[in-house]
């Protein structure tokens, strides 16, 4: 338990620092940045209390907002995906989730991809809608969501594969 706690604390800070110091300066093609820190919410243990996850997600988003001067858009998007995570888990993992035995290292690649994709697209959609904050620019919102999502998903998948521990 203690070990788990320290892993997630370290992951929280590492992801925030990587996000604000490296990933926000990529600006691929002018405006495409991966928002990779949501991996913290994606990999949060499933058995834990949902209240804790929602609270932690809020603080994660708020920390990113502090660094980027973006008001509360990251906090809002994070809280949103933290709240709807069980639905996405159920959709992408099906019966394994209902038996509460999902281990991110051991599930097959397809369902992991679906899970990360859904989570990322939801997060980015809320994020960019709030950032641009105008219905007349809906195309810009969708465009940014699409490109940034592709970038984020690729990065998340790569990182989870590289850092996954071998399970026998």
């Amino acid at each position: 338990m203690n070990n788990l706690f320290s892993i997630h604390t370290v992951r929280f800070f590492v992801l925030v620092l990587v996000q604000v110091l490296i990933l926000n300066h990529i600006n691929f093609l002018g405006y495409i940045n991966p928002y990779f820190y949501i991996l913290f919410i994606a990999l949060f243990p499933i058995k834990n209390n949902r209240v804790i996850l929602i609270l932690l997600s809020f603080f994660l988003g708020l920390t990113i907002d502090l660094f980027l001067d973006t008001g509360g858009i990251h906090a809002a998007a994070c809280v949103f995906i933290a709240y709807i995570r069980p639905v996405i888990l159920k959709f992408s993992f099906g019966t394994i989730y209902e038996h509460q035995t999902v281990k991110f290292n051991s599930v097959d690649f397809d369902s992991k991809l679906i899970y990360l994709t859904l989570l990322t697209v939801m997060h980015h959609l809320v994020l960019f809608s709030l950032e641009i904050f105008s219905i007349s620019k809906i195309l810009l919102v969708l465009q940014k969501t699409l490109f940034s999502s592709i970038f984020t998903i690729l990065l998340s998948i790569t990182v989870t594969i590289i850092f996954s521990r071998k399970t026998k």
Partner: peptide, 22 residues
């Protein structure tokens, strides 16, 4: 409904921050 209420509370706080920043 504590999860939903907490979500609603934090979501509105973040929206408030967003509107303020605009």
């Amino acid at each position: 409904n504590k999860n939903f209420l907490l979500f609603l509370l934090l979501f509105s706080v973040s929206i408030l921050f967003t509107i303020q920043s605009h």
